[in-house]
């Protein structure tokens, strides 16, 4: 390991600590949530509950089977359906109060998240040798428009645009600005910084991508090496990504595993069919009717009361 000082710090030490914080914190949080008791059965119900056979129930928005609940979670993760329920309340002259669906959050979130997924998968070309064929295929779709040189990826545009619009949305609505805190702005600016440095690296720095890949592969093989020809901007990009990884488990970004672990989303609404036991209930001594009858059968028969078993 012969990496000079600053390179070693920004290229090896910081990313390594960030990865440790990411996986360690991720597991720490997820295990903590898994250990938390769920005292009540609390699925969100947004449709007709399953009841009598001739009343049609809403299987997706009020699922009564684990499969239905899984489908609801999958659609929330893939299509962000819950964001479509975002309602905007406005007062007009009159005064007149209106409620209308506001779908901007859904649109900007879809733009940002899906392009981020594509960007992360595209980066595998720098982490795997030889480059997997499916990454090249994904890249080809992303370069569909063949605009600019190097070709501008559609995901780059959607990523920066989506983030910018999410930030603008947060800033332009007085109500939203009022409830926004550092923890809301920081990830937006951080991701915008990552997007900006990444875009600059690809389109303006004339960097030697082969040198960058050799350096990254050094990290992947856990034997970091000094590679010449890497611009300082690369270390800025890497540092911001490291900050994102390190910050991730301790922030609102943990909605990534959290959405899968929300009892409001992943429980089936079957509380009338299946008893939900509060895990912290003390053991309750019960005396079932069968036991009751066993105890008093003789006297019940004497008194002329009906019994199940003679």
């Amino acid at each position: 390991m012969d990496v000079p000082g600053l390179c070693l710090f920004f290229g090896v030490i910081v990313p390594s600590l960030a990865v440790v914080s990411f996986f360690g914190g991720f597991a720490w949080k997820a295990i903590g949530w898994a250990r938390s008791p769920v005292p009540f059965h609390i699925p969100i119900t947004c449709g007709q509950q399953r009841s009598l056979p001739w009343i049609r129930s809403n299987r997706l928005d009020n699922p009564h089977t684990p499969m239905g609940a899984a489908l609801r979670v999958a659609l929330a993760v893939l299509l962000f359906r819950p964001l479509l329920r975002n309602t905007m309340t406005e007062i007009y002259a009159g005064p007149k109060l209106t409620y209308a669906p506001s779908r901007w959050l859904w649109l900007f979130a879809v733009m940002f998240h899906w392009s981020m997924l594509v960007i992360v998968l595209r980066h595998l070309r720098l982490f795997v040798e030889p480059v997997p064929a499916w990454v090249l295929t994904l890249q080809r779709f992303d370069r569909f428009f063949e605009v600019g040189h190097p070709v501008i990826h559609a995901s780059t545009v959607l990523f920066v645009l989506g983030l910018g619009l999410l930030l603008l949305r947060r800033l332009s609505s007085p109500q939203l600005r009022y409830i926004s805190i550092l923890n809301d702005y920081f990830p937006l600016f951080l991701l915008l910084g990552i997007g900006a440095t990444g875009t600059l690296l690809r389109h303006y720095s004339n960097s030697d991508a082969a040198a960058i890949k050799e350096f990254v592969m050094g990290l992947v093989t856990l034997s970091p090496l000094a590679v010449s020809g890497i611009p300082a901007l690369f270390y800025v990009h890497l540092f911001l990504v490291s900050v994102l990884l390190a910050y991730f488990p301790w922030s609102k970004l943990m909605h990534m595993p959290g959405v899968l672990m929300s009892p409001t989303l992943n429980l089936a609404n079957n509380s009338r069919a299946v008893r939900h036991v509060n895990p912290w209930n003390p053991p309750v001594g019960v005396h079932s009717y069968a036991e009751y009858e066993d105890e008093f059968r003789g006297r019940m028969i004497e008194a002329g009361l009906p019994v199940d078993k003679l």
């Binding site: 996986f23 040798e129 050799e214 992947v220 595993p257």
Partner: peptide, 24 residues
Amino acid sequence: LMVFVALACAPIWLVLARRSTASQ
């Protein structure tokens, strides 16, 4: 969690499996 960590570290397993230095 195990599936997530295994997938996220896939490049490391791949490079270990192929025993390549992956230099330029």
